[in-house]
């Protein structure tokens, strides 16, 4: 029995690498990209604003699964450039997730900026701060505090969303537990997989609680 549990666990741990990779790549890249999109959505250059809004609309208006399929199966069918866009499963998953989460983070940060009192920009201006310094020293620290709970929420959602990569055949935690359940005709692998997801999410919840305490003033 325990031997059995240990072997299920060790098989599932082989999948967790993909789960964690997609998670880490997405967090590390989509947050800065989301911030850039936020700035673009408030740019003085109108076409830049329109493109960003359209991008966010399309990404948030279509299923992540469709986006995954599009990047992995769809891109190679594009005329001319298609043959150069045959991506590996992991690369395709990373790209689709980063592009998707960047749009959500963009909206979170945009909302955070909207919550900031216009008086803050005015005080900075009359004190001689330039646009860039105003952003970095005055606005962003306040925006981060406002955005942090939503960022935490999104990050926790991401852990669970990574299970979607199984649909393009990546052997992540979800995919391996499904295979095990089928071959063993036993539900235990699902329960163990659920436990692993919960541990990850518990750790993240604690981490964000710490960060929120740190950002309070």
């Amino acid at each position: 029995m325990f031997e059995n549990l240990a072997s299920i666990f060790s098989i599932l741990m082989q999948g967790i690498g993909y789960t964690l990779t997609v998670f880490a790549v997405t967090i590390v890249l989509s947050i800065p990209l989301g911030l850039l999109l936020t700035f673009a959505s408030r740019s003085r250059i109108a076409p830049l604003r329109w493109i960003t809004r359209a991008y966010v609309f399309v990404i948030r208006g279509t299923p992540l699964m469709l986006q995954l399929f599009f990047v992995y199966f769809g891109l190679p069918f594009l005329p001319v450039v298609g043959p150069y866009l045959k991506l590996g499963r992991l690369a395709a998953a990373n790209i689709a997730f980063v592009l998707n989460y960047a749009a959500y983070f963009c909206e979170i940060f945009r909302g955070g900026l909207l919550s900031i009192d216009p008086g803050q920009y005015e005080a900075a201006k009359v004190l001689g701060f330039g646009r860039f310094r105003t952003m970095i020293q005055i606005i962003l620290p306040q925006m981060i505090k406002v955005a942090l709970p939503s960022v935490a929420n999104e990050t926790i959602t991401l852990v669970k969303d990574t299970a979607l990569v199984s649909v393009i055949g990546l052997s992540d935690l979800m995919e391996l537990s499904k295979k095990l359940v089928n071959s063993m005709v036993d539900v235990t692998p699902y329960i163990i997989a659920a436990g692993i997801y919960l541990v990850l999410i518990f750790a993240l919840t604690k981490l964000f609680e710490k960060l929120e305490k740190k950002a309070a003033y």
Binding site: D117, G119, Q120, E122, A123, I138, P141, Q142, K145, Y217
Partner: peptide, 10 residues
Amino acid sequence: VFQHFNLFPH
């Protein structure tokens, strides 16, 4: 100097 002070809260 503003009516609502506009101190930097952070």
